[in-house]
């Protein structure tokens, strides 16, 4: 079995052409990224607002958890049939699939955004307000930057959810790596099916690692271990370069925390 999967993966003819692995991977990544982007546009503002005001937490937690429980395959077929009747044929199925994936990607981002913002140390918030910042400024300059690590953890969960579920797009005739899984099952071609599933797993791990690294550097140095490294090397530096402190927010935060 393992040998068959390996043979399927290493056959060069399987990698090229319209049904080739490169093309399918590209499609898979495309569906995933669009879905996560759509979900982010919806989840981030709502999550930030709720975290900031503290209102509607129960409602959002309930809605987010209900969204998680959606049976995605059934929803997809239902949306696909509806979309085929109401949207231009060229984009109907893509729209339906991306909508389903986005619905799945919203809950992790929504919950982690509001949790991240809500968990900001009240002292930091007070300090910011004491400096004369308005509510919006507090949210944008203090709360959201501090919440970045949690935002990224939500983003990563959302990505994993979307990339794994994007296989079902193949159920409604679209491409993506799910094509191999679904066709392989129906055609009794298990190496193809397992190979496809393996590629999805690889894509999930690779994407998650990339997001982890991006998240690590996107977060303020004061919130990550980069700060510790910075401190360790301090004795060897002659002067404190101003460039690294161009962002004032972390300093405000750290000042507030200490």
């Amino acid at each position: 079995m393992i040998g068959d999967i390996w043979a399927w993966l290493t056959t060069s003819a399987h990698w090229t052409g319209a049904d080739g692995i490169w093309q399918r991977t590209l499609e898979h990544v495309e569906y995933t990224l669009i879905a996560v982007a759509v979900a982010a546009v919806i989840a981030l503002p709502i999550g930030a607002l709720i975290g900031h005001t503290g209102r509607g937490t129960g409602l959002v937690a309930g809605t987010a958890n209900a969204l998680r429980a959606l049976p995605s395959l059934g929803l997809l077929v239902m949306l696909a049939l509806w979309a085929l009747g109401h949207l231009p044929v060229g984009i109907a199925l893509q729209t339906a699939s991306i909508a389903v994936l986005a619905l799945l990607a919203i809950p992790p981002m929504l919950t982690s955004t509001y949790a991240g913002v809500a968990a900001v140390d009240p002292a930091a918030r007070d300090a910011a307000e004491g400096m004369g910042m308005s509510g919006g400024q507090v949210l944008l300059r203090v709360e959201l930057p501090i919440a970045v690590p949690l935002l990224f953890s939500g983003l990563r969960s959302a990505y994993l959810q979307a990339v794994a579920t994007a296989t079902i797009a193949a159920f409604v005739s679209l491409g993506g790596l799910g094509r191999y899984v679904i066709d392989g099952l129906a055609q009794h071609d298990y190496p193809k099916m397992a190979g496809g599933a393996l590629l999805v797993a690889v894509l999930a791990v690779v994407g998650d690692r990339i997001l982890a690294v991006v998240g690590h550097f996107a977060a303020s140095a004061g919130l990550t271990s980069r700060r510790r490294l910075w401190a360790k090397t301090a004795p060897y530096r002659s002067s404190y370069p101003a460039a690294s402190l161009s962002e004032t927010q972390p300093e405000v935060v750290n000042a507030a925390r200490q």
Partner: peptide, 19 residues
């Protein structure tokens, strides 16, 4: 070739709508 379902609603809808 578009992979639809085995003669099910998706096939019918796909034919109706010109997919």
């Amino acid at each position: 070739y578009k992979v639809l379902d085995p003669g099910g609603p998706l096939s019918v809808k796909g034919l109706q709508t010109g997919l």
